[in-house]
Amino acid sequence: PGMPMNMVSMGTSGPATEVLCLMNMVTPDELKDEEEYDDILEDIKEECGKYGIVRSIEIPRPIEGVDVPGCGKVFVEFNSQADCQKAQQALAGRRFSNRVVVTSYFDPDKYHRREF
């Protein structure tokens, strides 16, 4: 099938950071519901905690009439790059709500500035 763009570098993570970006896990619709959002947050916290110390999690939620950057992605900040790396190895390709989880490292500065 036609690759969308130059996919040569796909499958390589680049240098590790302590922030993991998880994609293809949640839909904006699921995040609208308060209980569902809480459950999703809890599921992610619990699983990521198996691979290292989780410092913080950000799940951008939809806002009516606003194009929220990063909505649909999940960001997990670990205590160290090593923890983050372990989590990436463990979680990439797992299924969450039957969707295949895609991961990448994320720039910690951007994360702290909430530039999703």
Binding site: S9, G11, E46, A92
Partner: peptide, 25 residues
């Protein structure tokens, strides 16, 4: 309720030609 995570570390989905680790840039 059950967790939304499925399978284990050893049960990964494989989609031919579509890696699940992407570069950060």
């Amino acid at each position: 309720r059950r967790s939304r995570w499925m399978g284990t570390e050893n049960e990964k989905a494989v989609i031919p030609g579509m890696p699940t680790i992407l570069p950060a840039d």
